[in-house]
Design a protein around this nucleic acid. Sequence first.
RNA 1: GGGGUUGUAGUUCAGAUCGGUAAGAACGCCGGCCUGUCACGUCGGAGGUCGCGGGUUCAAGUCCCGUCAACCCCGCCA
Length: 609
Amino acid sequence: MKRTHTCGELREQDIGQEAVLFGWVDGYRDKGGCIFVDLRDRDGVTQLVFDLQVNEGPLKVARTLRLEWVIGVRGRVRDRGTMRNPRMPTGAIEILVDDITVFNQAETPPFVVQDDVKASEELRLQFRYLDLRRPTLQKVLRTRHRTNQVVRNYFDGQGFLELETPFMVKYTPGGARNFVVPSRIQPGKFYALAESPQLYKQLFMVAGMDRYFQIVKCFRDEDLRLDRQPEFTQIDMEMSFVTQDDIFRVIEGLIFRIWKEVLDVDLLEAYPSGRFPQMPFYESMARFGNDKPDLRFGLEHTDLTGLVIDHRGGGIPLLQSLADKFTSGRYRQDLPQEIVKAMRIPAEHKLSRKEVDRLEDFVKGMGAQGMARAKVAPEGGWTQSPFAKVVTPAFRDAVNAATGASPGDLLLFQIGKEPVVQTVMANLRLHLGKKFGLIPEFGSGGQWRFLWVVAPPLFEWDEENQVWAAAHHAFTRPYDEDVPLLETDPGMVRCYRYDLVLNGVELGGGSVRLHDSKVQAAVFKAMGLRDDDAREKFGFLLDALKYGAPPHGGIALGMDRLCMLVSGRESLRDVIPFPKTQRGSCLMTDAPTPIDPALLEDVRIVTTV
RNA sequence: GGGGUUGUAGUUCAGAUCGGUAAGAACGCCGGCCUGUCACGUCGGAGGUCGCGGGUUCAAGUCCCGUCAACCCCGCCA
């Protein structure tokens, strides 16, 4: 028998044809005198029919079939007449089987292979090859394939070269923790698995490749999350002789193409200019508490720190002590920065006291000390609030005005160290957005809100080592007008770094690189890096930059996250064929495992557990 | 490193505030019947170390301690 059709393609117009189909038994209904079998392959499901009157031999075989057996059948495409199934694409027809071959029997699967899967993810990961038979996951992988093809076509059409970079690279401290690979030939030395092709793609620019892209695996030994895997895929690119805006245009073009060709969505309807909006980093932090705002709904934050200082705490002891930390309008630098933020919950979103209590537990789980609240009364006063009795009317009115609070609204406050307040408020906003039904629990809800977050600070203060550390990497170009601040106020230096955000998910990020050696030296100096330190860490790149590096920049997009959003899945694990668990295990293969002691000896490794 | 949720039949779950009369359902599986099903129907049957270890108790699925695994979050990570 030679296959003539897939299980998803036969239609009304094929009636009367002979067809040979191969596939898996998706279901069977034994009526005694006739048996119906659903045959499944990656393209769909076709109903087979065995009839005692017509084909007794095959019917006897069909009676023995069980779920997930692999069979082939030859038969005639027949009209189902009045018994058509409108819910099946092939529902108009069935195959009246003349001949059947059982290629392979199957043990009873640990869970039933069906879209409406009930088995736990743990079990499905253990039998991933069965899980992947489900039509939804087949569709996801097909979408991933399509996306890959669009990316390659697009970049090729734009003059990019698809070039490969090593996975086994030199270990460089800083940034994400590396997976390490011991060298057998050079005992005691190690390679690192590449966190990204970052340095190599810059070397491609120095080498004059002009435009590079790659769909590439990256490895990071950090704790996992719903949207983080230890090995993941990036769409990586770099361009020479460009500005930030040139890079934006290329990526916007790519995204438009993917949405059109994979989803059949024309983003021009939402973005008629073909461009995505941009928002400065500081604005995003102030309004949303993070650098990846979900713009599909409101519940924005208001930063009240300035008001609190102006009103010397507004009669509220907790805020008074915070205001006291400011001297002559400037925060005391010997203390960690503390801020005050509020979120206005409009009256239309009812929250019982009990629900607000639960919200307080929710934020405490993220490190918040508590969560003050205030209900706005008809004349603007605050009730149901720990502040109600002490707040000065002037401060209260100022807060109401700043947050836009009107009677019936609820105000939620966070007071404390800046990073905690921001994290808590950002998560609180998302939590409430879902709770109020403003955004779906997961998925896009058909809304695609893209945003470039731009102009973040070049440095972050490293509390542990008491130095300024590169927030992205040390080769990001600062804003020209901020270059003087490198010496006076490094924390205020903005840079040409950017993140592409979609519906609150960071799709990717990149930067325009620093190619001016004078500015580069100033950046290293601000970081407290001596010349030889820098040389130790980045020597080969510094050398390369000396030999005629073009101005260049690039970006990397998270392929897995992109596929997750495009496919409307809630988890990265759903769009990676063989993902790992939160502790980095593969439940199917049981990796990681101990290895043969002889192999350890070969690479001169002694373990201590 | 920290916080939280979950773990009972092959699978998904119930088994409540009160420790004993509770080892249960559905799907799947096995056998019988059925010629138009497509969540087929119907009759019957098998299937359990209640994650694992310890403790309290006359008695533990249920209470306590520990441990393992999966999941979610903080830290970490672009």
